[in-house]
Design a protein around this nucleic acid. Structure first.
Lengths: 186, 186
DNA sequence: GTCTATAAGTTGATAGAC
DNA sequence: GTCTATCAACTTATAGAC
């Protein structure tokens, strides 16, 4: 892995763990095993490095989600696969985390990948649910509203788990929404 | 309002907006119109001030929620009242926000009010739902899992709204879960 | 490409005057 | 109680040698 790549990967890890405000260029350099001059040679500063890191994280998250959405099974089974995919629940969502970072949300460039990722997820989930309705697998639900609900359960589940220091509330929240959805399965 | 109170209120506002890591004693002093010596006279430092602020915010949140939980109407109506209560959605939840603050979660004292608030909310919501089941207003749902789901929709709704820079995804998520719950109303 | 030196500003806090 | 002075460490860079 190149120094440039190590810098991006280190920024990704620190952004996830400590957020943008809590991540200093010095910490990134130490984590990447790179000197100060090296970092400023490859990137103009903290914002450019963060942008590269955020884009990579967003791309990865979309690719992972698409695996579940385009996988086998009914719409409900694919939504369940998405929600129950193996996750590091206590670390939270690396993209959702950024919404709490005022300096990220204040910068249109840094903010865009976050906005776009969630918009794509909502549309893709709504598509999956609409397919389920179309095929008669699901009845009596609004795909668009339900897509937002499913995503909110995921993002909120992370919050509850971190507050409790336990994955239990996350799992309960997922079980709860899947039980509610099961009522609408044909 | 006393200087001590102004310092606590300023810390509450800044903690909500910028988080613990992003809030400096200097910023608190400026916001409160207090000098450095004054701040260190009333509080031993940033952690003690944050603890006072977090406790006050947590107490307020519980009191507000209890208004909806103990209000009039069926279980489902009270859950809907809670979810649809007037909120500053784009600012997010002042308690949920703290779960993304590594320095808060690493300190057992600062963390406790966050943990306790969410635990209390989950139990209280489960109670309301269990009452609904008991009274025959709701059928075929698990009060404990559903309580976690409802809270997750709320916390996740904030995340989606901030990502989108719009309250729309929050409202969709709430509408979606209430529609799912309505299926279980007698 | 990577290194060291330097710098202006901030952070979180202490000391002591008033 | 509140103020100013001071502090060591850190933040986010820039400059220039190698």
């Amino acid at each position: 892995m190149s120094t440039q790549d190590r810098l991006i990967e280190s920024t990704r890890a620190l952004l996830w763990e400590r957020g943008y405000v809590g991540t200093s260029p010095k910490a990134i350099q130490q984590h990447a095993g790179a000197g100060q001059g090296s970092m400023y040679h490859h990137f103009s500063g903290k914002p450019e490095l963060a942008l590269a890191a955020i884009r990579r994280t967003a791309d990865e998250l979309r690719a992972l989600a698409e695996q579940q959405f385009s996988g086998p099974g009914t719409a409900l089974e694919r939504v369940a696969a998405y929600l129950r995919r193996e996750r590091d629940v206590l670390r939270g969502c690396p993209v959702g985390r950024l919404t709490q970072d005022p300096d990220v949300m204040a910068d249109p460039e840094l903010r865009r990948p976050v906005d776009e990722t969630f918009a794509w997820l909502r549309e893709r989930l709504a598509q999956v649910l609409a397919e389920g309705v179309e095929r008669g697998e699901l009845t009596g639900l609004d795909p668009v509203a339900t897509a937002s609900t499913v995503m909110a359960v995921l993002q909120g589940g992370y919050v509850l788990a971190r507050a409790a220091g336990s994955t239990a509330p996350f799992e309960q929240a997922v079980d709860g929404v899947l039980a509610l959805l099961a009522t609408h399965a044909a």
